[in-house]
Write a protein that binds this DNA or RNA. Structure first.
Lengths: 233, 233
DNA sequence: GGGAACAAAAAGTCAGACTTATTTGTCACA
DNA sequence: TGTGACAAATAAGTCTGACTTTTTGTTCCC
């Protein structure tokens, strides 16, 4: 997934990024470029490039005569897919999954409503195929196949919304769904009710029923929130 | 605003970033590090750091023997505050404002509902103060003062939601509100109805009425969408 | 025509010297 | 005692040049 080992600086980031996002260096900690370069056995130029990337993610701040200081979590670019991946791979994975699921619950219903208005015929077809795929893999421990179609389904919805901000959350949703299947919940087959809701949603989009599409997605979201014990009483 | 001129590579980005996000180099265009370094009159090391940052934003991809190729817009990290700022400063500013306003309309109602549950006493107080500030500056062309309190208001809501993903949209909302005041709409005093809604929203949060807070925010969002002629029939 | 060897191109890497901003400490002076 | 200016130390920032590596495109031979 993504782009592994695109150069030495990338390899450095693969270990330094997760360390920082895991909170291994508390906010305010100071790193020295030279020391880091030694530790990773790379030249200063390579290390500097890595630091620049971390800086652009607002994970650290580099200042003369001071060093590279770790920023407080509240300033991190938490929408950066790379940061999301690092955090999902670390200790606060549960916390991250919750945050993202709440975000999904806000965004996806609106996106579905827009999709019902804007989806092309091609997208409607894809949506139906995805839903059928989910049905086909909903029984008998075919979790990988189910996941695949689930991700594709939500990606089509987000893309069909016609809003680029929504569309770019496709990767985030994919990470959340993958994470959910791989680790936390879902030991057994997916909830049949959820499968039905997806089928109905595909239908609603096909029939241009925006209000119904939005409402159905809200129900799907409630299910996802409940799975993580995020109550909305 | 933000952090201007943090080193030579930053200055390069200040002009190269906007150029790319403005679509000046169409997707697939190839840039050469050496040429860029010459053009900006900086060393290759500095230029490389700049390219690394653009790469981490998924604006470009750097490959050996090929050069630095511009990626299609659909792959850009459009949630990166820097990218947002660049795009807002460029030609597709209207398009960007629409996308972001739709995003707001999805996120803020849910955030407000959560804020009604999770806001601290301190946050409730701040919210009320902001609302009062908006009222106080709502007449007589005090747009700057109104804007200031409007931004603060929405920032408090997003922070009080307790969800870090929502909280980090504070900057985005600030950019949108600022952009709206500075350029496009709002020649005259703000809509009195909007001001009233904000006051009521502060009240709803104070009274822990999540459903009402959510609904009021939805009404505010509808107003924002209408201002940009984004109809939701 | 297809495949292997070769050449060219551009990014990637490294090492070292030098510059500059910022902090911190010191010392003199009020 | 406090305050200001000045000096030293420090770590990032910058530049240069040489070298390596990967990828692409070409050419040549079968």
């Amino acid at each position: 997934m993504s782009t592994p080992g695109r150069g030495l600086h990338g390899q450095v980031l693969d270990t330094l990024g997760p360390e920082i996002t895991a909170g291994e260096y508390p906010p305010g900690s100071v790193l020295r470029t030279d020391e880091l370069a030694q530790r990773f056995d790379v030249s200063r130029s390579v290390m500097r490039e890595a630091v620049r990337v971390l800086e652009s993610m607002h994970l650290v701040e580099s200042r003369r005569r001071v060093g590279v200081t770790v920023r407080p979590r509240s300033e991190w670019n938490v929408y950066d897919p790379q940061v999301i991946r690092w955090r999902l791979a670390g200790a606060d994975r549960p916390h991250q999954l919750r945050s993202l699921t709440v975000l999904r619950s806000a965004v996806e219903p609106v996106a579905a409503g827009l999709a019902a208005r804007n989806a092309t015929a091609e997208q409607c077809k894809e949506l139906t195929e995805c839903a059928l795929g989910m049905v086909a893999h909903s029984r008998g421990h075919q979790l990988e196949g189910y996941l695949f179609h689930d991700i594709a389904f939500h990606r089509v919805i987000l893309n069909a919304s016609g809003n680029e901000m929504f569309a770019r959350l496709g990767d985030v949703v994919a990470e959340v769904l993958t994470g959910r299947t791989q680790h936390d919940v879902m030991f057994e087959d997916p909830d049949p009710a959820a499968v039905t809701l997806h089928v109905k949603l595909a239908e609603a989009v096909r029939e241009r029923d925006a209000a119904r599409a939005e409402e159905l997605t809200r129900e799907i979201a409630v299910g996802a929130l409940q799975e993580l014990d995020i109550l909305a009483p």
